[in-house]
């Protein structure tokens, strides 16, 4: 455990809390992509299957349970809550996210640390998480005005994986740990946020509304 890793996980938790606060307080999920949320549920389920097979960890286990519970709750709200589901931008959340699942599954089948059910699914979840934000970024580009909570949510989501990259650099030098799969996927994932980060920081600096081209 190192400070980067702890900060990263707390940032990730914060992003989810921001999203839950937004949905619960504004009773609206406008600007949030349900497809991205669906993909995150898939990411957490396929990654945390080892919850009960591997020894429980005082740190990881609570986080895994919270991530699973919150991501499922968010999808439940957006699909079935009578008020919230009316505010879902169904017509602009158009990204074909099913086209993301198959390539990640095929890639996981061929590139994984060990050809076992758990490891292949774990690789699948790592690859899927790298691209899961795409529907959300596409939706933001078509949104006329992005509300602050949504902007902060996406920013924190991108920042958490960037912090994981720092954690991996630290672990490489301090603990000689090498992990190609999450490293490369994490780089791709963070790179996808690059232009969002640029516009987000620019809007924050000029104290103006966040607007993606």
């Amino acid at each position: 455990m190192n400070a980067f890793r702890l900060l990263a996980d707390l940032t990730h938790l914060l992003s989810i809390i921001i999203l839950l606060v937004k949905i619960r307080t504004t009773k609206s999920c406008a600007g949030i992509s349900l497809k991205t949320q669906d993909l995150y549920v898939l990411v957490f389920i396929s990654r945390y299957l080892d919850l009960f097979t591997r020894p429980l960890s005082l740190y990881n286990t609570p986080f895994k349970l919270v991530f699973l519970a919150t991501s499922i709750t968010i999808v439940y709200y957006m699909r079935y809550h009578k008020v919230v589901k009316q505010t879902y931008n169904k017509d602009s959340d158009t990204f074909k996210h099913y086209f993301l699942i198959l390539p990640c599954a095929v890639l996981a089948f061929f590139i994984n640390p060990k050809f076992t059910f758990i490891e292949v699914l774990w690789s699948f979840s790592i690859y899927l998480e790298a691209v899961a934000i795409l529907p959300q970024l596409v939706l933001l580009q078509s949104s006329s005005n992005i509300d602050n909570l949504t902007g902060n949510y996406v920013f924190m989501l991108g920042a958490y994986r960037a912090l994981y990259l720092l954690n991996w650099i630290y672990r490489f030098f301090a603990e000689d740990v090498v992990r190609w799969i999450p490293w490369i996927a994490g780089l791709v994932q963070t790179a996808l946020y690059a232009d969002f980060f640029y516009y987000y920081i620019k809007s924050w600096r000029n104290n103006e509304r966040l607007k993606l081209p």
Partner: peptide, 10 residues
């Protein structure tokens, strides 16, 4: 294998 790592991260 060198790639096989215990999953100690989230």
């Amino acid at each position: 294998e060198c790639l096989y790592q215990p999953k100690d991260e989230l």
